[in-house]
Amino acid sequence: MNVKDINPEILARQVVPPTRLPPDQTLLDLLYYMKLTRELEFRIERKLYRQGKIVGGVYVGRGQEAIAVGSCINLRADDVVCPSHRDMGAFLIRGMSLRTILAQYMARKTGATRGKDGNMHMGDLKHNLIPFVSMLADNVPVAAGIGLSFKMRGQDRVALCFFGDGATSRGDWHEGVNMASVFKVPVVFICNNNQYAYSTPLERQMAVENVADRAEAYGLPGEIVDGNDVLAVWDAATRAIERARSGQGPTLIECKTFRMTGHSAHDDAGYVPAELFEFWEERDPINKFERFLKERGIITASGIEDLQKRIHREIDEAIQIAEKDPFPDPEDCLKDVYYEES
């Protein structure tokens, strides 16, 4: 895809604009979590990884922060989130600590999986976060089952399930979405359509124009939003969550965005035309939101600077602690394959 193929009106034409705004405190929270996500992933990808402190792969969601943040901010603590691999904001909002996250990336015993698994494969039932497995879209049928259990027990809880555009090519995605719709379970499916799956552009992934077009085949609403507009994401997610909570079944939300990095830290994304990065850089979700907040007088330039300083401090502190955290004991390899009496 090159720039001339991107209809600049694509967003204006298809996208549902926000119909309402959250309260001011939520606006500030949205900014905090987006900026925290960006800085944390910057440190992970550009500092710790390059210093050799993170082994294995690193995948970040730079440019996509509005999606996880905008959709998770309104959840209740007893709602459940099934994040994918570019949804760092979900972990932060659900209350996973920076130290736990950093220790996870640095393979320490104090990480979310105690060194058993790496990077964003984090979860904890305490935070109602279901960890991702690499097999893309495996979390979709699982989310359907989570929703099913809520429905069976008459609980008004909701599950959010995240995935990329590429993941929607897997059979498990279709089976899961179909089943969720047949059972009308309270699940919101959220796609970060960042136009690429590794090196594969969208048109090589699907013959329909939008991921949301897939919804019709399974009888659930499919909505498209500007994934770089946190308010649009917030609004669509809020409506879908309310819909699910009130027993009206699942919704698919497609967030149009762009992956502002390579697929992972070792990929220079040479296959992505430079103009595409430029096009989307201008639509950076954080810059855009900061402009909006300043125009509205909700935050000042120096307020943003203070926020950035606070974020730096929080991350610095967490890195210092996590770096001193111990690695797991070798024999821990054998633990927890099955239930163990403690």
């Binding site: 999986t113 060194g115 390899c333 394959v337």
Partner: peptide, 16 residues
């Protein structure tokens, strides 16, 4: 290897 998944952290994987 022992009957476990393949763990990630270097000391665990070395053990495995």
């Amino acid at each position: 290897a022992p009957d476990t998944p393949v763990p990630y952290s270097p000391p665990l994987e070395e053990f495995f």
